[in-house]
Each structure stands twice: as structure tokens, then as C-alpha cells.
Simulated assay, not measured.
Amino acid sequence: MALRSVLLGVGSYLPKRVLTNAELAKQVDTSDEWIVERTGIRQRHIAADDEKTSDLACQASLAALEQAGREAKDIDLVILATATPDLTFPATAARVQAAIGAGPGIAFDLQAVCSGFVFALATADNFLARGQAKRALVIGAETFSRIMDWEDRGTCVLFGDGAGAVVLEAQEDAGDRGIVSTFLRTDGRMHDLLYVDGGPSETGTVGKVRMVGNAVFRQAVEHISGAMLEACARAGVSLDAVDWFVPHQANQRILDGVARKLGIDVDKVVATVAIHGNTSAASVPLALDVAVRDGRIKTGDLVLMEALGGGLTWGAALVRL
């Protein structure tokens, strides 16, 4: 019998500091009305000066392990999706592995920006389905506040910090539970639409986020819609069969645009962008955790997660919880 990657638990962590639109309006030429109208965002969380990406990731991981009923020593694969690692190297995943008491096992970072969690989920599924690992911790964690240009109102109003994680386990008798299908794509020709203008090889600096907002919006609606349809097609299910949609929380207008394009009932879309902002690779697991813990998403539900990020990268993952 084929192995299935079953999602056993989910967890998240948000820094204590909340940055509201009203506070941002004191720092940059903007207003609460301007931000809400264009993005739907009302607040975002900002990591404390002594909080690293690994700290956020550890908290989310421990919460996911507790819900899954597993211990850190049970984990033999850690994949951490992030564009804001603690250090250039070693991998932040290795720090998390050591800090929570997992391993020795496989641990590495994955960089696909806002699509990172979906890419990491697909990668972990390939390890588990081939029997190369038994239990995986898949994490999305970001401290995007460290790479923001706080004078650029086109970007600084969008992003926040946070982390989300899930525990996956390879099972032979899972029935129809587990990761059903995934679809991933990258098109490097659109690199300049969303990028950071720094890096150790090119500039020797960390750099700041730069984005061509209107172009990214158009690409997001088109490619996220396509990825969702492809993931369903690969699984042989219709979009109507999906119980819940958990998209990357980039912008409420993108969420609404995709729903309109595909004729999706907005009540089936989990939206946390208003309170979290865009937390890049952390946004999908953060939203998933909210909906699982408030009782909307239940065991047996068919959930479609999707995202688009810098690269450009995009993808979707269909999971039966």
C-alpha cells in the first residue's frame, strides 16, 4: 500500500507587538482608510528586537507537535520555508531542530518567498511518500520587518512577522487522508516584479523589499487560479468538492479576485490578512491554524492551499485533513 503524508497537527506563533495602520500613518504618508481600501489590512505583528525567525519557528513548531500528539524526538525531517533566515548559514531549520530537541535527521531551509510553505509541503510529501523520512515538521516563518523600507508606503504597509507549522506523518492505512496533490511553478523571467535589492553575493548587504504592485496583482490572480485548478485536476476532483480554501494572505483584493474568477463562495475562503498582514511563507500555515482551532476546518475536510511569491513562484496543495 502506498504511503500517504497525513497532516496530524498545526500550530502558529505571532509576536506580541501589534502595529496598527494608525501607527503606520505617523511614520509614512498613508492612512488607515488608504491601506484598508487597497489591501484589506488593518494591523500586523512585528518581532521584538531580540526575536529571531528561529524563535518564531520554534514556538509554532511546539504548538503543532502538541496538537499532533507527537514529540520533537519523533521528527526526522525539518523543512523551514523562509526568506528571512537568522544567518546566511547554517540553515535556520538546523537551529530549530536543535532548539526543540529533534534529530539528528534531515533539516534544511527552502526559499520560495511567499510560496515557500506550499513548496515545502510538496517537498516533505516527496520525502515521506518515498519512505525517506517518517515524520516531518514543515514550517513557514518570517521576520519581514527586518527587510522593509519603512519609508516606502507601497510595501511597508503590507508585511508582518509570524510563523506557522504542521506535522506530517507517513502512513500506509490513511484511507483518503493526507496530501492528495500538489502543483508548483517558477518563472524567473518575472524576477524584477518582487525582489530584495540586496544579498551576500551581489551587494554584500541584506537589502530591502521592492515590488511592482499592480503587475504582481495581475500575475497573482492569474497564476493562483491556474494552480488551484491544476491541483484539483491532478487529484481528479472538482473545485466544488473542496471544503475550504486557505490562500496566501497577500492582499484582500487578490483573495476576492481569485474567488470571483473561479466562482468560489467567499464563505469557504479563510482570510486572516486583515489581522496578520502579509507574513510571506508563514501566511498559509498561520491561516490554516486559525481555521482549525476555531473549528471551521475539521478532520476529513478537503482543503486547498495556494500561494504566489517572488521569483515569481506559485503553487497549490490539496490536502484531506
Rank of each mutant, 00 (worst) to 15 (best):
G315E: 09
F119H: 08
A291Q: 12
N251Q: 06
H276N: 15
V18I: 05
G162Y: 13
A287P: 08
V113R: 04
I275F: 12
A120D: 02
V113H: 06
D125F: 03
I79F: 04
I275V: 13
Q132V: 00
T53V: 11
V292I: 15
W314I: 09
L158H: 02
L321S: 08
L14I: 09
R135F: 06
A165G: 00
K261Y: 04
A174K: 00
V113L: 03
G310S: 06
I297F: 01
Q171F: 01
S225G: 15
K298D: 05
A94R: 14
E71I: 07
L239N: 05
G257C: 04
A124L: 06
V258N: 02
R17H: 10
L128D: 07
D243Y: 09
W314C: 06
V237K: 08
A124V: 11
R4Y: 04
L312T: 09
A287L: 08
L24M: 15
D173I: 10
A64E: 04
V28R: 06
T299C: 02
R189H: 14
G105W: 06
L24Q: 08
L193E: 12
A63W: 12
R210S: 05
R95H: 14
G277P: 01
F144Y: 12
P200N: 01
I224Y: 07
A133V: 00
A2R: 15
G11I: 05
G105I: 11
V258Y: 10
L80N: 09
P85Q: 01
K26G: 07
G300Q: 13
D86P: 15
D265N: 07
G300T: 11
A129Y: 01
L19A: 00
D76F: 11
R185D: 12
A129S: 14
Q111C: 05
L304P: 11
L286G: 10
F144G: 03
V303N: 13
A233P: 14
F217S: 00
W244H: 11
V216H: 12
S61A: 14
A163D: 10
A22N: 10
M148Q: 05
R38E: 07
L168N: 14
V96I: 15
A93I: 11
T272G: 02
R135A: 10
T182I: 12
A282G: 04
Q67G: 14
V209E: 00
E51V: 13
G9M: 05
A83I: 15
E222V: 13
G257A: 12
A112T: 05
N126V: 11
T82D: 07
G213Y: 04
